[in-house]
Amino acid sequence: MRLIVHNMMSCNIKGVVNNFPLRIEAEKVIEKEVDFNPDFLRHMFAKIEWKALVDGARSLGYTELPDHAPDTAALESDESFLRQFHHALLELHLEEGSLVCPETGRKFSVNKGIPNMLLHEDEV
């Protein structure tokens, strides 16, 4: 699971209000190279919850992202920022570990990079 997905995921348990972001407990992190595409990054930037991305990247061991989201001008001109954003969003994978619901503490395990988001019957 990459952070682009983590940033979009919320806990789906019935009745949970404080459902985002899922806390990451990392056991194994891997990196895979992805083609750099500034247009795609600019397109995604507006959708991203910045703090969740920064915290998510930290929990995967990557600390280069600025604490505060830069303004959109940086997206046009600042290539080194775009590269960091690219790396955090698309190249880091949580391979083994868990995602934890911020409200209930329910753990969703991640195996071979795949989060198991199946709910138990009493959670639906």
Partner: peptide
């Protein structure tokens, strides 16, 4: 996974609803 697809995979049941934030897809 074995076929090394490029997308991210989630194990889930669509009938339970999708746990995704609003307006992002």
């Amino acid at each position: 996974v074995e076929r090394e697809v490029e997308g991210d995979l989630l194990l889930g049941d669509m009938g339970q609803g999708l746990g995704l934030r609003a307006g992002v897809i």
